[in-house]
Structure formats: structure tokens, C-alpha cells
Amino acid sequence: MQSTKLMTIFRLLPLLFLSMFAQAQTTEIDTHPNALNFLVMGDWGRNGADHQKPVAAQMGKVATKIKSEFVIATGDNFYPSGVISEFDPLFKYSFEDIYTDFSLQWDWYPVLGNHDYKSNPDAQVAYTKISRRWKMPARYYSKIFSIDDKNQVLIAFIDTNPLIPEFYKGEYSKAVISQDSTAQKKWLEKTLANNSPTIKWKIVVGHHPLYTATEKRRESYDTRAIRNSLKSVLDKYQVDAYLCGHDHDLQHLKPEGKTHYFVSGAASEKTAIGTLPISKLALSDYGFMVFSATPDKLFVQVINEEGKVVYNTELSK
């Protein structure tokens, strides 16, 4: 019995350490006036329920303070089952009526999550023609953002759902079959092969994680599928960061290689989390992330529902 208790304590020590570290890092948010500043949030559309509204309120305050230029949404944009058309009322009740702060009226760049695939994923593409700020021109797309006159950030927004073989059998099958996963992989490689000297950072945004400390998904079928499909591509093109959601928590993981992995899927729900040896942050809390890109630094701050910075780190060139 005593041996079992000791084993349990030792298993919990890494998680307790990470939690204490996150709390110790609580500070006021840093501003980077000369950087490209943007927010990253995910797993959010619940008609304002389950902490969506208070997180949205903090997003507005933070976006105002840092002068955010856009928002990235990492998928599962509309619970429980996506939207059926570009006129679905969920666009109003889960998006337009929730993110009302003036600082959040700039461009939003979403990707599709598995819940978005339960209805009509192309409806979210079509909504781009209706909304001033919703920018999803296709199920996958890319954009180059300027830091200044000479330096840029390349971001590829991908659709991870068709990269999961099991999705071709069940409730997602009809929408997944309509997507050409081979064409997307070729497009991604071509996009990331851009060797322009002006591009200082390469970032990929998807819904599903390659790595996660969330216990039930560490080696789940979808995590393994995405890792098997994307890891070699991210390594080959020296991608600086992969951003995702799916798990309703806040994470920073750093396995071997250049790429840092960030999970931001706690914009309206939080779930329990464990820890891994590669975990830099593993936090079960409501919140979102702030990224600030300069030519030689990529600053990352994790903000919780109370507006506190619970973690920060920086990537260097």
C-alpha cells in the first residue's frame, strides 16, 4: 500500500511542478509595439456558455492592450455539430454576438475541427463572403503577414481532418471524402518550401495535435495519425511552431527537432491534463495565447480567464 502511494506521488510531481511554475510566472502582459501581434484560441463556439463569454471579454482587453492585428481560431468553431449553411444562426449566437470588443473586429483566420465536420464544413468557407472579419477562403489556405517593411511571417492554415484514416468510416466520412488529402499535402510542402529571405518565421495551424499531455489522447488514433502524417514535413521545412486545439487545455511541448508545439483549445471549456517529459506547460485552465513576432524573436504569452499571464516563453532565431 505504501509503495502504491509513493508511486502515485512520484507520478504527480511533474504535473505539480508545472502547475507551480505557471503560477509563479503570473505577471502583467508584456507589449511589443514593433512586433506582429495576434491571438490564438480554440474550441470555442458554445453560444456563450461554459466560460466562452468571460474568455472573450479578456481577449478584447488583451487585444486592445497589445494592438492585436488578427485572431487565429484553431478549430471546433461551433459546438456541438458545426453549422449547416453560411446563414446558420450559430454564426450570430456563437461568434458575432460574443466577440464584440472593437479590438476583435479585425481579421479572424479559422481552421476546421472535427466538430465542424459533423455538418457542413464548406459553410464556414462560404461565410467568408458574408462576414467582414471571418477569413476562411478554403478548407486550407496560407497567408504571409508583415512584421515590418523587410520581414514577414508565413502561416499555413491546414485541415487535419482528412489526414485521419478513421474519419473515412464514421460520422465524418461524407465531408472528409470530399477533401483531397494528397493534394493538401502537396500544397503544404510547396507552401513551406518558400525560401524568401524576408520570411523569418514559418508557422502551421491545424486542429489536431501531434503531441499532447492530455492522457486519453497521448497515443489516440487521431494524435498518432496527425503525427505520422505531418511530423516529417514540419521537420523537413524547419517549421518554427505548430499551433492547434482539440484538447481543451493550454500546452507548450518541445520534442526533438526545431518545431515548438502549442495547444490552445481552452476558449470555452477546460479538461483535466497530465504531463509529458517534453511538456514545458501543461495547464487545465480557460484561456488563450498571445504571439508577438519580431525579426529575431517569437514571444508567446498564455492568458487565463482572469486576464493573468500564466506562462510565457520566447523562440529565438
Score class of each variant (00 low, 15 high):
residue 4 T to N: 12
residue 8 T to K: 09
residue 10 F to E: 04
residue 13 L to E: 04
residue 15 L to A: 12
residue 16 L to Y: 15
residue 24 A to I: 11
residue 26 T to P: 01
residue 27 T to W: 05
residue 32 H to A: 03
residue 45 G to D: 06
residue 46 R to G: 05
residue 48 G to A: 03
residue 50 D to V: 02
residue 59 M to K: 03
residue 60 G to T: 05
residue 60 G to E: 09
residue 65 K to W: 04
residue 67 K to G: 10
residue 71 V to P: 03
residue 76 D to S: 03
residue 77 N to I: 10
residue 78 F to V: 07
residue 81 S to P: 00
residue 81 S to C: 02
residue 83 V to R: 01
residue 90 L to I: 06
residue 98 I to V: 13
residue 100 T to M: 02
residue 101 D to V: 01
residue 106 W to M: 14
residue 108 W to F: 14
residue 108 W to T: 07
residue 113 G to I: 03
residue 114 N to W: 13
residue 115 H to R: 08
residue 119 S to E: 11
residue 127 Y to N: 00
residue 130 I to K: 15
residue 132 R to Q: 15
residue 132 R to F: 14
residue 145 F to T: 08
residue 148 D to Q: 06
residue 150 K to Y: 06
residue 156 A to T: 13
residue 158 I to K: 10
residue 159 D to K: 11
residue 160 T to Y: 05
residue 160 T to N: 08
residue 163 L to D: 07
residue 166 E to Q: 13
residue 170 G to S: 11
residue 174 K to G: 10
residue 175 A to V: 08
residue 184 Q to M: 11
residue 184 Q to A: 07
residue 187 W to Y: 09
residue 192 L to F: 09
residue 192 L to W: 01
residue 194 N to P: 05
residue 198 T to I: 09
residue 202 K to A: 08
residue 207 H to S: 09
residue 207 H to Q: 07
residue 220 S to L: 07
residue 222 D to V: 12
residue 224 R to W: 01
residue 231 K to W: 09
residue 237 Y to A: 14
residue 238 Q to I: 08
residue 241 A to I: 10
residue 241 A to N: 03
residue 244 C to V: 11
residue 247 D to A: 09
residue 248 H to E: 13
residue 250 L to S: 15
residue 251 Q to A: 12
residue 251 Q to K: 12
residue 254 K to V: 15
residue 254 K to A: 15
residue 259 T to K: 00
residue 259 T to E: 00
residue 260 H to L: 05
residue 262 F to Y: 15
residue 266 A to I: 03
residue 272 A to T: 14
residue 274 G to D: 08
residue 274 G to M: 05
residue 278 I to R: 01
residue 281 L to C: 10
residue 282 A to W: 07
residue 282 A to M: 11
residue 283 L to R: 10
residue 287 G to S: 04
residue 295 P to E: 12
residue 296 D to R: 10
residue 297 K to S: 12
residue 301 Q to V: 12
residue 303 I to Q: 00
residue 308 K to E: 13
residue 311 Y to K: 03
residue 311 Y to M: 06
residue 314 E to I: 08
